[in-house]
Design a protein around this nucleic acid. Sequence first.
DNA 1: CGCAGTTTTGATTCATCTCAATTTGTGTGG
DNA 2: CCACACAAATTGAGATGAATCAAAACTGCG
Lengths: 247, 247
Amino acid sequence: MYAVTTIRSAAAPKKFEVTCSSCNLRELCLPQGLGATDIARFENVVYARRRIKRGEALFAAGDEFKAVYSVRSGFFKTSLVDGEGREQVTGFFMGGELLGMDGIGAARYNSAAIALEDSEVCILPYALIEQLAAEVPSLQRRLYAVLSREIARDHGVMMLLGSMRAEERLATFLLNLSKRFTARGYSPSDFHLRMTREELGSYLGLKLETVSRLFSRFHDDGLIEVQQKHVRILDAAGLEQILATRH
Amino acid sequence: MYAVTTIRSAAAPKKFEVTCSSCNLRELCLPQGLGATDIARFENVVYARRRIKRGEALFAAGDEFKAVYSVRSGFFKTSLVDGEGREQVTGFFMGGELLGMDGIGAARYNSAAIALEDSEVCILPYALIEQLAAEVPSLQRRLYAVLSREIARDHGVMMLLGSMRAEERLATFLLNLSKRFTARGYSPSDFHLRMTREELGSYLGLKLETVSRLFSRFHDDGLIEVQQKHVRILDAAGLEQILATRH
DNA sequence: CGCAGTTTTGATTCATCTCAATTTGTGTGG
DNA sequence: CCACACAAATTGAGATGAATCAAAACTGCG
């Protein structure tokens, strides 16, 4: 286990006064549910942030696992590349969501995290978090819960990829995105997609042309407005209806 | 948090002397890497086993989350059913593998676990495991690692479902199964599938007829022998070749 | 021994992919 | 600030892998 000072000097990113207690993403982020005293201890461990420009990697698959990251602003994709060069986008991440947890088990990141817009993350040095979790039961519980929810989330994606037709996949994705934007105080119906059609296609198990055609079809059906990356949901109930339609 | 005695009297399954230290699945199971003293404490918490007959549920989606289970013998599937009645098999589990971890976050199981043959599991009461983990760093580390690996495993399935063609999916599945059997001292090439073609199809995102046809094709190509649920791998390199083939 | 559930196989359809051309948008350097 | 070059998105036509529908064969359980 590293000493705090060692890690600080080794990583040496911009040092900020990190104050989770006043962060508006607090309730979506790791310290959710912690009391004032525990949050203070937590802030002491989360001592820095890091900026990542669009297109840059926060970490790559195979990199040594040292920290988990919480998205403070911006947008990320995570993706996996197999031995044959196939890329699979495994998720999209926005404010308050945690990145890198799949690296704990193997001490190396299992996937890569790429910023899809200029972004900023809070660095959560894993050794310190782990140590603190052993002392603070509410943090320990929260950490297990976050890992477990990630598993449940992945199962949802497996359902999407394994059992849904193309238009159900896109409808599910749009509704999910809408919900997450809402939780962050943004419009539930009006947003800018940060990923390309190809990245979205990879995530949904579809080719980019298919994604593009689906957007056009949803548009023609009056469900959404699309203009390149800008999407406006006109008929959320209609999108839900797609999921209810017998297949 | 429950007192040990409360949980014991509440659950009251057959009481066994559980001795992880002498279990041949020890190195695949949760207590992997624990020293003698810690294993003893662990055994004290894992105080019981439970038998599940073929076709029965170890737990159902939505059940209150109380324990994680380790497969002692037998074979399970886990599956998810969405609002529209679609079933998605999310995994198959054999000796030493852990079931139910997706329930930690929501305090309810997120999926159902069904025995595909008469099976036995060790009951790992979560409240006690959590408590012990806070005191035993090696167990804490192992628990985080197990959760993290489950996430990484799920990402592998997402790759399979999102980026592979039907025959690549089946080849991947067979090779994975072979590896897991090998790790448990069984033949790497000769095994009995416990799931139906439909269950396997659900897991692989294919229809049962497609799975059946793929088995026939692999048979015709001299890669495997199949007779209903019995499979013998004749040419593992050939199966790997399928994955390497440009798509 | 018989029946229900499972698997195999065939014929056909259809959703999605592939290939290709065009349009639209974006970042960069003059 | 504009023009150019490159990246991204759209749309069309046609190919194809897997789904669907249907029937027959097998298996093992009661």
